[in-house]
């Protein structure tokens, strides 16, 4: 039984109370730390919406390449459809630029192919692809908070 086990370990009442006190203090301390960090983590972000309208589908005929500088996003259109690729380098967050062979990051030389797949430099991940939806008014909405698998292309009418 438990009393036997305690007797074997020779845990005195004083030690038990001491351990309980230390344990309680540790739990209280961790809870305080967690609560303090929770305060520091904001509940509201005073930032621009991650969703933005880019216009009607007919503005993006096949072969279109558009750069949305202020949204850090490229929009491409090819025979398979429309797709949005992030221009934020996955290494340390600089903005990549479009080249003949893909994307180039100026900060540490990361290179991506036209699908955003890493082909050089220190970037750990491929460029993100964003979800595109069509609003009721017919205009297209990109949501940079929602990433989709690379190669996801959308056809809108």
């Amino acid at each position: 039984m438990s009393s036997e086990a305690i007797g074997k370990k020779d845990l005195s009442r004083r030690d038990l109370l001491g351990l309980t006190a230390i344990g309680t203090a540790t739990i209280a301390g961790l809870a305080t730390l967690g609560g303090s960090l929770r305060l520091v983590k904001p509940n509201v972000h005073f930032e621009e919406s991650t969703q933005f309208k880019i216009g009607k589908p007919e503005n993006f005929p096949e072969g279109t390449v558009r750069v949305f500088d202020d949204k850090n996003c490229f929009i491409f259109s090819d025979s398979d459809g429309l797709y949005a690729v992030s221009s934020i380098c996955t290494h340390l967050g600089c903005i990549v630029s479009l080249t003949e062979w893909g994307f180039q990051c100026p900060c540490h030389g990361s290179k991506y192919n036209p699908e955003g797949h890493v082909i050089g430099g220190p970037a750990p991940r491929s460029l993100e692809w964003f979800e595109i939806n069509q609003d009721v008014d017919g205009s297209l909405v990109v949501d940079s908070a929602k990433t989709v698998a690379a190669g996801t292309k959308y056809i809108f009418t």
Partner: peptide, 16 residues
């Protein structure tokens, strides 16, 4: 991601 958000007070660098 959590450390970054605690540092920035948001997801992108701004007033926070």
């Amino acid at each position: 991601g959590i450390s970054k958000e605690l540092f920035l007070g948001g997801l992108v660098p701004g007033k926070e």
